[in-house]
Structure formats: structure tokens, C-alpha cells
């Protein structure tokens, strides 16, 4: 478990850094797929099998393909990065990102860590599969939000069609 976690964490962070830093957008998308797959494995580690499957199907299979399409369609003649705006504050961004990370970690270490050991993880309810639990919760307790989410997706689909449609 421990080894799996650290390995996966290392992969996830490395791939995330690669996604953000790669110049080539297609490569970035591929790194993103890998990253998503790693996250899916992490979900398995966390006993969220259904979510892992969804992660693979939706993220790695759907959204990323979408990204790939867009990357293909936006056939850039010159890389967006070649143009440098003098007002940009890249270092500032790095700095702030790092600072926020540091602070999160600080909070975790000072506020969360002491109790982390004390809180023993309860065992999963025997005989009840993860998918079943998720299904119960989703279709019984959160039925209305679920339907709202479906409407949201429908609207997004229509909006995407309208936006992407070529001007007549």
C-alpha cells in the first residue's frame, strides 16, 4: 500500500509537472491522460472502484479525447508562447503557487497530522460493494442533484454545439 501510494504520488506529481511545463500541446495532453490514469489507480487504492472506472471512462476516455480534437483543430502557425507580454508576471505566479503549496502543507502538518494517527480508518461495510453504495447514495439521497447535473450536461452539450458551430 505504502509503496503503491508513493509510487503513484510520484507519478501523479511528475506527470502534472510535465503537463504544465511541456511546450508541445499534444504531449501535454498525453501526459494528462497518463496523469488521469494514475489518479484512477489511486482511487482503487482508496477503495473507490466505481470512481476509478468513471475516471478512466470519462476523463481519460472522453474529456481528453475532446482536448485532443481541439488541439488538432486549433492548428497554430506559431506557438502561443512565442509572444511575450511585458506585463506578464510568471515568476510571481510560480512564487504564489509555491507559497500556497507551502502553506497548505504547513496547515496539514501543524493542524491535521497530530490527529491523523489517532483516527483509525473504519473498515468498509462488509458485503456491500462500492458500486452499490454509490448507486444507493446517488439515486436515493442525491437524486435531484443528479438530475440537475444531467441537465447541466445537456445544456453544456448544446452550448458547445452552438459555440463550435461555424458561422453560416
Amino acid at each position: 500500500m505504502t509503496i503503491a501510494f508513493y509510487t503513484l504520488a510520484a507519478f501523479i506529481l511528475a506527470l502534472g509537472v510535465l503537463v504544465v511545463s511541456t511546450k508541445n500541446t499534444v504531449h501535454a495532453v498525453l501526459f494528462l491522460v497518463a496523469n488521469f490514469l494514475c489518479v484512477a489507480m489511486l482511487y482503487v487504492l482508496l477503495q473507490a472502484e466505481f470512481l476509478a472506472v468513471i475516471q478512466v471512462l470519462v476523463y481519460a476516455g472522453g474529456i481528453v479525447v475532446l482536448y485532443l480534437f481541439v488541439v488538432m483543430l486549433v492548428n497554430l502557425k506559431r506557438g502561443p508562447e512565442t509572444h511575450v507580454d511585458p506585463r506578464r508576471r510568471d515568476r510571481m505566479g510560480l512564487l504564489i503557487g509555491g507559497a500556497v503549496l507551502a502553506e497548505f502543507v504547513a496547515i496539514l502538518l501543524y493542524g491535521f497530522a497530530p490527529r491523523a494517527t489517532g483516527a483509525a480508518p473504519a473498515a468498509a461495510a462488509p458485503g456491500v460493494g462500492n458500486v452499490e453504495q454509490v448507486g444507493w447514495s446517488l439515486y436515493v439521497d442525491y437524486l435531484v442533484p443528479f438530475e440537475v447535473a444531467s441537465i447541466l450536461l445537456l445544456v453544456a452539450m448544446i452550448g458547445a454545439i452552438v459555440l463550435a458551430k461555424k458561422e453560416p
Binding site: 501523479i12 502534472g16 504544465v20 500541446t25 501535454a28 506578464r88 510568471d90 509555491g98 500556497v100
Partner: peptide, 23 residues
Amino acid sequence: LVLSAALFSIGLIGVLVRRNLIV
């Protein structure tokens, strides 16, 4: 949580630093 924070920060830095909208 540390992993999550790190990944979040990486994404944040990407948002702040990169100029390509897709990225």
C-alpha cells in the same frame, strides 16, 4: 491531502504561468 495540495498547486501554477489557453 499533501499529494492533493501539491497537485493543486501544480495546476495553479499552470493556470497562472502558461499562455496557451488549452494548457
